[in-house]
Amino acid sequence: MILLISDLHLEEERPDISRAFLHFLQTRATQAEALYILGDFFEAWIGDDAMSPFQRSIAQALRRVSDGGTKIYLMHGNRDFMIGADFCRQAGCTLLADPTLAQLNGEPVLLMHGDSLCTRDEAYMRLRRWLRNPLTLWILRHLPLATRHKLARKLRKESRTQTRMKASEIIDVTAEEVPRIMAAYGVKTLIHGHTHRPATHPLLVDGAAAQRIVLGDWDKQGWALLVDANGFQQHAFALS
């Protein structure tokens, strides 16, 4: 079986989520062939050189599962796009591009974080292009740690303020963008997170039946998508 999760937003201020994730690793993830984490794994990430003891402990927990035989794949989200090779080495995971075409149960499936699908949010898309520019990333990684911490706090505060002010359809995926990118990759299943709106949406791609599966965020409960011989099944579970 294969497991997919996203949007845990791990941080020391939410020990309930961290405990639930560690339990998830020790129980369900150790039984899986692969675990895919599709972005916003951490609430914030300002560079591998700034890893806190808490973040290192998460890396060590992932490494134990990886050493046990479960393949672990990690994709950047909009909160942790500066995760780099050093963290992945410590965690024993493989960093995926966004989007990535994966084979799940013999079917080509497109995996994304999901923020790049929100094309109606033009201000965010401009910010995203600027932040993901290789030159910008190089500059950010070479700023003093104190400056990076300050900038991260500022961006998080602004993001929360703007999200509250924007209409819900602006911060959701653009309906027309979904079949366009699915057709471009030749898939009938797209899996993403980011919107915190877990659901399976049937749609048509080039006239054929398709589906968009939105992963749930870990907040009041946890979510995991199970892929096995029975297909795609997403379940919620208590954090306690």
Rank of each mutant, 00 (worst) to 15 (best):
Glu43Lys: 01
Arg129Ala: 13
Gly222Met: 02
Glu158Trp: 08
Glu169Ser: 12
Asp206Ile: 02
Met1Gln: 09
Met182Leu: 05
Leu239Asn: 09
Thr147Arg: 15
Thr189Gln: 05
Ile72His: 04
Gln60Arg: 13
Asn230Trp: 00
Thr163Ala: 15
Phe21Arg: 03
Ala224Asn: 00
Leu135Phe: 12
Val178Glu: 07
Ser116Glu: 11
Ala152Arg: 06
His142Met: 09
Thr174Tyr: 08
His113Asp: 01
Arg63Glu: 08
Gln221Tyr: 01
Leu190Asn: 08
Glu169Trp: 15
Gln31Pro: 02
Asn78Pro: 01
Ala123Met: 11
Ala208His: 09
Ile58Lys: 07
Ala32Cys: 01
Val109Asn: 08
Asp48Gly: 03
Gly39Ser: 03
Met165Gly: 03
His192Glu: 01
Arg197Tyr: 07
Leu96Pro: 06
Arg153Trp: 08
Glu43Met: 03
Phe42Gln: 02
Thr70Asp: 06
Leu104Trp: 11
Leu143Asp: 13
Thr161Met: 12
Gly207Arg: 05
His76Gly: 04
His201Gly: 05
Gln221Trp: 00
Leu10Lys: 03
Leu239Ile: 08
Glu13Pro: 05
Tyr185Glu: 10
Arg212Lys: 10
Tyr124Gln: 11
Gly39Ala: 00
Asp228Lys: 05
Ala102Leu: 07
Arg128Thr: 06
Thr136Glu: 03
Leu117Phe: 11
Met125Thr: 01
Glu33Gln: 08
His76Arg: 05
Ala175Tyr: 10
Gln90Glu: 12
Met112Cys: 15
Phe81Val: 02
Arg148Cys: 09
Trp218Gln: 06
Leu140Lys: 11
Thr94Val: 11
Phe24Thr: 13
His23Leu: 09
Gln55Met: 14
Ala236Lys: 09
Phe81Ile: 04
Thr94Lys: 00
Leu25Gly: 05
Ile171Asn: 09
Gly77Phe: 04
Asp80Ala: 01
Trp223Met: 02
Ser116Gln: 13
Met51Pro: 02
Ala123Glu: 14
Lys166Trp: 07
Leu127Arg: 13
Phe232Trp: 10
Asp206Trp: 01
Leu145Asp: 05
Ser116His: 12
Leu127Glu: 07
Thr94Cys: 06
Leu117Trp: 10
Gly92Lys: 01
Glu122Phe: 10
Met165Glu: 14
Leu74Glu: 02
Val65His: 04
Gly92Tyr: 04
Arg129His: 11
His142Asp: 04
Ala229Val: 07
Asp115Phe: 02
Lys150Gly: 02
Cys118His: 07
Lys154Ser: 12
Leu4Tyr: 03
Leu8Tyr: 03
Ala209Pro: 06
Arg63Asn: 10
Gly84His: 02
Phe87Asn: 02
Glu107Leu: 13
Gly186Met: 12
Val187Asp: 10
Asn133Trp: 03
Glu169Ile: 08
Lys154Met: 12
Pro15Asp: 06
Asp86Ala: 09
Gln162Tyr: 08
Ala146Phe: 08
Ala224Glu: 01
Asp48Trp: 07
Trp223His: 15
Gln221Ser: 09
Arg212Leu: 06
Arg160Lys: 11
Ala44Leu: 03
Cys93Ser: 12
Leu155Lys: 02
Gln31Tyr: 00
Pro202Asn: 08
Gly222Val: 03
Lys220Pro: 00
Leu127Tyr: 15
Glu11Arg: 15
Gly106Thr: 09
